[in-house]
Nucleic acid binder design. Structure first.
Lengths: 266, 266
DNA sequence: GGCTTAAGGTATGACAGAGAACCATTGATT
DNA sequence: AATCAATGGTTCTCTGTCATACCTTAAGCC
């Protein structure tokens, strides 16, 4: 795993026992234990895996709904900063999994298949879910969501209010099978309107993970109705510029999902 | 088959960075305009640049204070998931910049030099600061900090309280030149104790950027004293398990820094 | 029908980077 | 003084990835 412990006990600078990352000395003494713990592997796997991650995110967020076409390979590859060859390897896998379908010729492309077909058989996807740190995901999500709601309430950019209302309405008219997608888009909109690109990007990432978890548990209509009310309340608070209320409502909303997931996955 | 090798299978934290631009196709409606906008380039530059970023983060966060030794090249390279050759190219640059110094032999290593020597001459570093999205940084920081404070107040792991107190005390006894570092460590501790690895990782990243910005403006003793009081209040609220108060104090604390930076950089 | 065009499918040469082995240096230990 | 061990310094090879060019398919347009 990550916190590498060093097999032979020789260590030049103290640090016995538990190497907590930021464990610190007092007065300027040396002896930071394991400063490296904040380091993120520059390459979290190889190009293939990272690309797969990104494309899956696109699908899981519902940004490209079933039936729709992904951007052309050349374009997508450029966006991802990856060669077309590498991207094609990823698409090949997704095709084998029955998640997408490629059609040649003009007006062809790579199309997203409805989720049913995916059949979940894949080891790849199962291992993926198993590897998720649920607690991390839920906590981080709550932080980002409440933060985004607060920032939005502090001031929306031009057109923000309209986009928010539109996204909210879209969820209200959604059929059950489309609800998850609309819900995701509403939250993504909020994150985007927060005015912090970093926040939006992180939310997209964590939300993709969250959706993966949510796919593992049943969708209850009652929770859904409750969610709807909370969505409306959050949006209302944001439009009223009541940051405190927006945060509080959002926190409650997230807590609901979190409780549900903890219950089912624990 | 596409089972690419790679020995370690680590994926501890998410990545950061979110550039994106590129005009969009937008061929006739369809509803979803630019789904690709959430895509993060898989490789934000080459291995060298990303590695440089990470090592700089280590230095800017003060996790390895001046005079101390970085982890051995072999170890550091492994942590970063990068080859030793690549890491060495990075260290070479830092050495040329006068930021670190390498000594051979047993008990040798790569040592961090005091900041004065760095002299800021480098174009590399200047371009870096110029490229920062200040507003993004400040907002994202506030979100993460308040979130971390709230989560900590909701419940600390064993030993968390002690670590927090220790980190707080360390800042109080700090001399001016060491204050920034202790301050950073206190906040990092809080982030780490939040129980979300993702949050901690993101905070580390954003804090490194923030420190870079703070290095551009004068350090005022008055602000410093004020900060001290706020630190104490936040820690107190956390230990009292008063999440709301912790969040509110932290928000205020962040707002102070933000106002300062906006004032000087605007 | 034949041409045009936009998409996926295929092949190849160049390069960056990983991995491993080896060399050189230095302080501590014997 | 000799040895050891941990570190930086160097070099080699091999593999993944990129960039590019070209082929194939299929829908629209003349």
């Amino acid at each position: 795993m990550v916190t590498r412990g060093r097999t032979d006990g020789t260590r030049p600078v103290a640090a016995d026992g538990v190497p907590d990352a930021v464990g610190e000395d007092a007065t300027g003494g040396e002896g930071s234990a394991a400063p490296v713990s904040v380091l993120r592997p520059v390459r979290a796997g190889n190009g293939f895996e990272e690309t797969l991650e990104q494309v899956l995110q696109l699908l899981r967020l519902g940004l490209v709904p079933p039936g729709d076409r992904l951007p052309a390979e050349r374009e997508l590859a450029q966006h991802l900063g990856v060669s077309r060859v590498t991207l094609r390897e990823v698409l090949k896998v997704l095709q084998d999994q029955g998640m997408v379908e490629s059609r040649r010729g003009r007006y062809g492309g790579t199309f997203v298949l409805p989720r049913a077909a995916a059949a979940d058989g894949s080891d790849e996807l199962r291992r993926r879910v198993a590897a998720v740190d649920v607690e991390d995901t839920l906590r981080f999500r709550e932080v980002l969501e409440t933060g985004a709601a607060g920032l939005c309430a502090d001031g929306l950019a031009d057109g923000g209010a309209a986009r928010l209302r539109a996204a909210l309405e879209a969820t209200q008219g959604a059929r059950l099978e489309d609800y998850r997608r609309r819900d995701t888009l509403l939250h993504l909109t909020l994150a985007e309107l927060s005015g912090s690109r970093s926040l939006a990007a992180q939310y997209a990432s964590v939300r993709a993970t969250l959706n993966e978890l949510l796919d593992c548990i049943p969708l209850l209509v009652r929770n859904l109705e409750h969610s709807q009310q909370q969505h409306a309340a959050v949006v209302e608070a944001v439009l009223d510029r009541d940051a405190e209320a927006a945060r509080e409502m959002m926190r409650e909303h997230c807590a609901g999902t979190a409780a549900l997931l903890r219950g089912f996955l624990a």
